[in-house]
């Protein structure tokens, strides 16, 4: 198979080159980029809150003093007993949870079954996008590997207000795709049946976004 793969590579590239022979080869610099690199937003956290909520995620606004209480309240209402806490989540967020819930740390790696049976996961995120109501996880410290935010039914995500940007261009400028990344806008959803939106298919059914104002 190795051999034929090499032939295929040369054949495809050769075919592409002969298709392009004689044609204009554009320069990337000449691509027009007259769209808005920044979008004027009056109040970023407010728009973010509004847009996240529109996709039926629950949004909570608080400050760093009130955040632990808010998180505990969310977990309680979700009846979450086993809560996954990724590595690198600051102690100021994880400790209060550990006092009242069974926290599951991913070291050693939690089994799929354990994750499947966990009730919730608490993470931070890398950036929030106001215009689209999106949180972006780069799965670094405080966010955990991807399975952690995929299998438990409830995802609670802490978003520092200072990490909220206006729109997609500003967000991508903050991100470096060296590892996996997940953009999340509301809970898992489908519109495959008569275009009617239903939340909660394979990803977490409930997404709670906790905006922390003074971080």
């Amino acid at each position: 198979m190795k051999r034929s793969s090499h032939d295929a590579r040369e054949a495809v590239l050769g075919s592409v080159r002969s298709a392009l022979a004689g044609g204009q080869r554009g320069s990337a610099d000449s691509i027009p980029r007259e769209y808005r690199g920044r979008r004027h937003v009056e109040a970023l956290p407010e728009l973010f809150r509004e847009r996240v909520a529109e996709y039926r995620a629950a949004v909570h606004t608080t400050d760093s003093a009130g955040a632990p209480e808010t998180v505990l309240g969310v977990l309680e209402r979700a009846d979450a007993r086993r809560v996954v806490v990724p590595e690198g989540l600051p102690a100021q967020w994880s400790d209060p949870v550990a006092e009242r819930h069974d926290t599951l740390e991913d070291r050693p790696r939690l089994s799929t079954t354990t994750l499947e049976n966990a009730d919730a996961v608490l993470t931070t995120c890398t950036v929030g996008i106001a215009t689209t109501g999106t949180i972006v996880l780069d799965h670094g410290p405080g966010q955990g590997r991807r399975a952690l935010t995929l299998l438990p039914d409830t995802h609670v995500c802490l978003v520092a207000a200072s990490r909220v940007v206006d729109d997609v261009p500003a967000a991508l400028a903050e991100l470096d795709p060296v590892g996996p990344m997940t953009f999340i806008s509301g809970p898992s959803a489908t519109s495959d049946i008569e275009l009617e939106r239903v939340e909660g298919v394979h990803g977490p059914r409930d997404l709670h976004v906790v905006i922390v104002g003074d971080v």
């Binding site: 109501g133 470096d176 990344m181 953009f183």
Partner: peptide, 26 residues
């Protein structure tokens, strides 16, 4: 990577009519 700033605005709005689709994996 920067080019995605255009397509991640164009695609969800054009396809599902959402500002952003629920999940994008990179």
């Amino acid at each position: 990577w920067r080019d995605l700033e255009v397509f991640l605005q164009l695609l969800p709005r054009s396809s599902t009519g959402e500002r952003m689709n629920p999940y994008t994996s990179v």
